[in-house]
Design a protein around this nucleic acid. Structure first.
Lengths: 218, 218
DNA sequence: CTTCTTTTTTAGATTAAACTAAATATATCT
DNA sequence: AGATATATTTAGTTTAATCTAAAAAAGAAG
């Protein structure tokens, strides 16, 4: 069995591998986990003994198949709970992360099987991130930043990159929430600002905003 | 903040105080927690420093008001989650204890407020035990064992004392589940066996069965 | 009111997960 | 290549929660 701390490390390594493609460094893990590199070394050695990662001193870490499966399952649980919190308990999408961070460690396969069915086996969480299936496989997603869209393209808002209270308030004011369709009417080259259409309105959006908003394209 | 272990000790002490009325002994706690008395002493001293219990060496322990409130809240969370598991996820009543044992430690007042509302603010859990309200107050319950009923009395099944798979199968076969009305038609003095009416049927029940079934009386 | 038993506490050790400080690899730069 | 900087690991501590074994207090019995 995995401890809570071990599960959190596996999750962090999983995300880092996804971002970088290859092996993951001790420092990168330490930064993501908000801990010291020496603590990471300790833990990584324990995970290597449990055959959850391949570890070469001074070189880096890589998840084994077993490690990947375990990490994906924790992420699956996290995202399913987020769906539950938003869909059933009416939480706002930016309030659920910390609670899901706790719920993801509840140990009961039966619970997750039933929760998944109860929620209608969703493919994405409230932030637009894909939910791994029972085998740890992630659905391919076409999620990208609004700033990456070109003139005349459109996308559906699926989440935010960093959610400060002010930013979410701004979105509310502009009538943007999950599922809102956004069309790029114009794009300035020199500062990346845009004019977008949302519902019946049109307005200006700065790069800072467009760089912080995830959309899904067709 | 309370740690997971501390919360479990408070819960155990709460239940023991309820059973015995007065102060609780180190040994009693050790037995309930399935741990050694020396571990209990350590923990009880920590809880005393946090002013969750009153502790007099060699004498015993007693919850403070703060300790009672904290324990009742953990129990409230446990029982609300049990309702969720049975009502929403269709778990059987005897499968939910261990999962609720984990869920009860999730820290988020907002979560519990919303969960309670979502479940319709239930007063009892699937075992017929009362759910403490937001202030830690327990609804008075008239829950008793079926074996305590006299001839011609009736009760509504609210739970079981010890739930083995065989026993629950037996109940299923006889058409008894939560909410079933049971009327005592006759009671043998020398062995405590009964004849009961359930729905349209009448049948014989041994003391062993009647001693294991909780009913609520008017 | 001593003696014996039981209960409770103390002292010292262990494990998981973190930390600090020091040592050792690896990487970079002139 | 040699010097310096950076990354990583090791060694030794700390804290929470447990344990075993030994000591001390309380309760029971003659």
């Amino acid at each position: 069995m995995m401890t809570l701390a071990e599960e959190n490390y596996l999750k962090a390594i999983f995300h880092l591998e996804y971002e970088s493609g290859g092996e993951v460094s001790t420092n990168a893990i330490a930064e993501k986990m908000e801990t010291k590199p020496s603590s990471v070394t300790d833990m990584v050695q324990k995970l290597a003994e449990k055959e959850m990662v391949l570890y070469r001193r001074y070189k880096g870490v890589q998840l084994t198949e077993e490690g990947k499966k375990t990490a994906a399952y924790v992420i699956r649980k996290h995202r399913l709970w987020e769906v539950f919190l938003v869909e059933k308990l009416d939480f706002h999408w930016d309030e659920v992360h910390e609670i899901a961070e706790q719920l993801e460690h509840i140990q009961s396969d039966e619970l997750i099987t039933r929760l998944d069915k109860y929620l209608g086996s969703p493919d994405f969480d409230p932030h637009g991130d894909p939910i791994p299936d029972e085998h740890g496989v992630l659905k391919r997603t076409s999620k990208k930043l609004l700033s990456e869209l070109d003139k005349n393209q459109q996308g559906i808002c699926v989440g935010v990159k960093e959610s400060s209270a002010e930013f979410l308030q701004y979105l509310d004011k502009k009538g943007i929430s999950i599922g809102t369709k956004i069309t790029v009417l114009g794009k300035e080259f020199f500062d990346g600002s845009m004019v977008v259409e949302v519902g019946k309105g049109q307005f200006f959006i700065s790069l800072k905003i467009a760089d912080n908003l995830f959309v899904q394209t067709a």
